[in-house]
């Protein structure tokens, strides 16, 4: 089992092309932990903004009457991939992992696979 800090460090070192990662509470929009980022990518702004993305999708599913759950959300930019992975389990509800990847260097399939493994190992 890994704590927040270890999991985020793992996400940015083990996943090729990672430029920043955050663990976010989407009931409040605040980050429980961040790593990487910098002046081009303020992860606290990303946490708040992507909280709205997750909430909108959750609400849309409710309106559509879909009895399903969101596993992850992929946003493709010109130069980056942004990957949002909702945490599962009773102790983890209301949290998501956010990962920003450099499109040139990243392998999307591998990144998703590794993020899934990091999530399974995470203990908040």
């Amino acid at each position: 089992m890994a704590n927040t800090e270890t999991a985020l460090k793992e996400a940015t070192t083990a996943i090729e092309g990672a430029v920043g990662a955050a663990l976010v509470d989407y009931t409040s929009g605040m980050a429980l932990g961040t790593i990487g980022g910098g002046k081009d990518l303020d992860l606290n702004v990303a946490a708040a903004g992507n909280t709205d993305v997750v909430r909108a999708k959750v609400r849309t599913m409710e309106l559509l009457g879909m009895q399903d759950e969101i596993e992850d959300i992929l946003i493709t930019l010109g130069t980056q991939y942004h990957l949002i992975r909702l945490l599962k389990g009773r102790n983890h509800s209301g949290l998501f992992l956010y990962l920003a990847l450099d499109k040139q260097r990243a392998n999307l399939a591998m990144a998703r696979h590794q993020l899934k493994r990091i999530e399974a190992d995470l203990e908040v």
């Binding site: 409040s28 929009g29 605040m30 980050a31 606290n44 708040a48 903004g49 909280t51 709205d52």
Partner: peptide, 8 residues
């Protein structure tokens, strides 16, 4: 409310 955004 999204407190993160409220702060920003």
């Amino acid at each position: 409310i999204n407190v993160g955004r409220l702060h920003l």
